[in-house]
């Protein structure tokens, strides 16, 4: 896993319906050193998903640059794994085939990529679901597979776009704890987009608060690991940090 720099990134696009140019992101710089977990929070429309889509390469940048592992990037690529809010699993592929898709694209042989996929499924406790279709899984399991699929491609950085927004509260907490566990085990570099402040604080080393397409402030999260909701829910430091971030978001 490698580092990611976002330098003076901006995005203006031509809105064909409005007939004019719109600025969505303006001069945003974010440094994510190797192995760090950064959350980006902000109200809807603040440009956080636009930034992620540019980093992922789904949208062309209007200005600035994105550097992964020392190289400027343009267009989507396997060095940046993406976890989508809508899980985006291929409905016509089994769980195993979904996870093996990335290695297959890299030209890994059938035997080997199945081994890789099974290995990663085991990491998330999903071995039993390998031969099922995404449609046959619960929402929480679908999201787990989405995370595993991105990880199995061994990306330099992992980009997560509100991945837990559409699962129930109980499952979300479990998924968050699992994600911190996996992060501690493998130390991937992660950018995590969310509008849920406690989630951002719980997961990250650093929270970037965004407002109207600009970085409002960055907050260091110096909470000890391993983290679990059981201990943090009563933790004073967690409460202070959360309310500080919340105030920033609400002022945004």
């Amino acid at each position: 896993m490698k580092s990611l720099s976002i330098r003076n990134l901006s995005k203006t696009y031509f809105d064909p319906y409005a007939g004019k140019h719109v600025t969505a992101v303006q001069d945003v710089s974010i440094e994510v050193p190797e192995g760090e977990f950064v959350s980006i929070v902000g109200p809807s429309g603040c440009g956080k998903t636009t930034i992620l889509n540019m980093v992922a390469g789904f949208l062309p940048v209007s200005g600035g640059e994105i550097v992964v592992d020392g190289r400027a990037v343009s267009g989507p690529g396997p060095d940046r794994g993406v976890v989508f809010q809508s899980h985006a699993l291929f409905p016509w592929k089994t769980v195993l085939e979904n996870v093996a898709f990335g290695p297959k694209m890299r030209g890994v042989g059938p035997k080997e990529r199945e081994a890789i996929a099974r290995d990663y499924l085991a990491l998330a406790g999903l071995s039993h679901a390998a031969d099922r279709y995404p449609n046959e899984l619960s929402g929480g399991m679908q999201q787990r597979v989405g995370v595993v699929r991105a990880l199995a491609n061994e990306p330099a950085v992992l980009l997560m776009d509100e991945p837990f927004a559409s699962v129930d509260a109980q499952t979300r907490m479990t998924l968050q704890e699992e994600l911190t566990r996996i992060w501690q085990e493998r130390r991937p570099t992660i950018i995590f987009i969310t509008h849920d402040v406690p989630e951002a604080v719980f997961l990250a080393n650093r929270v970037v608060v965004l407002s109207k397409g600009r970085v409002l402030e960055e907050v260091e999260i110096d909470l000890p690991r391993p983290r679990s909701w059981e201990t943090l829910i009563e933790d004073e430091r967690f409460k202070t940090l959360s309310s500080r971030v919340l105030q920033l978001v609400r002022s945004a």
Binding site: T12, F14, P16, Y17, G19, H21
Partner: peptide, 17 residues
């Protein structure tokens, strides 16, 4: 990032609107 829009895009945007 140029702000000038090519004429075809203008036409297209007019059509969409």
């Amino acid at each position: 990032a140029a702000l000038s829009v090519n004429p075809f895009l203008r036409l297209w945007s007019g059509y969409l609107r």
